[in-house]
């Protein structure tokens, strides 16, 4: 952290660097999230989402959660987002086809979201979390995380692995294109195979 701070701004104090970095990542995230909402092109939306996710990964770094940041980058950016882009590619007749919401819907949605956001902010401000000053000496070693996952959280961990397996099978089944004459094709194939076997023998 200090090294990054020294590279970016040598003169600033220890508290300023994280603040600058926070605003940087937060700005990237927030702007990209807004871009996700506002962009009408699905491909551009995907790109904006990419930047949001990267910004969030940066915030994880600021929060001393390096492993999580790495997972965010690898899984989200490298996995999920690629998946989404593939989805876009597979389902879109033209990558620039767009569907516009109605104006009334837009107004209602924005009004509701403004109210919600205002309410959230007010709630956050009025809540007393008694935040401590950051203890920079506090580290979150990956070893401890691994111990926690295979210790206290073993059952959820294993359940998650089962969920992943189920999802893998389910997704593969769902995405499979169904053909009515599958069985007939199999039968035909078997017939040819047995014919060949007879020829050979």
């Amino acid at each position: 952290m200090n090294s990054i701070a020294s590279i970016l701004a040598l003169s600033v104090d220890a508290q300023t660097v994280p603040a600058v970095l926070f605003y940087l990542f937060a700005g990237i995230s927030a702007a990209s999230a807004l871009g996700v909402v506002l962009s009408r092109n699905i491909v551009r939306t995907a790109v904006c989402l990419l930047f949001t996710l990267v910004g969030v990964a940066g915030l994880y770094f600021l929060l001393e959660s390096e492993f999580l940041a790495a997972v965010q980058l690898v899984v989200y950016v490298g996995g999920t987002l690629i998946l989404i882009v593939f989805g876009v590619m597979l389902t879109s007749k033209s990558p620039f086809s767009r569907f516009e919401p109605k104006a009334g819907e837009v107004v209602v949605a924005i009004a509701a979201c403004i109210i919600l956001f205002a309410a959230l902010v007010m709630a956050i401000r009025s809540a007393d979390f008694r935040p401590q000053t950051l203890d920079t000496t506090q580290k979150y070693p990956v070893v401890a995380l691994g111990q926690a996952l295979l210790g206290d959280y073993l059952v959820p961990f294993e359940l998650a692995s089962v969920v992943l397996l189920v999802v893998m099978i389910g997704a593969a089944y769902l995405a499979k294109s169904r053909k009515r004459d599958d069985k007939r094709a199999v039968a035909r194939g078997a017939a040819t195979l047995s014919q060949k076997a007879r020829q050979w023998s």
Binding site: E105, V108, A109, A112, C113, I115, L116, A118, A119, L120, M122, A123, S126
Partner: peptide, 18 residues
Amino acid sequence: TALMVAVALSLAGAIIVV
């Protein structure tokens, strides 16, 4: 949308009351 409007309105109401 309906869900969100409902949540927003109830939240707003709750905050106003508080």
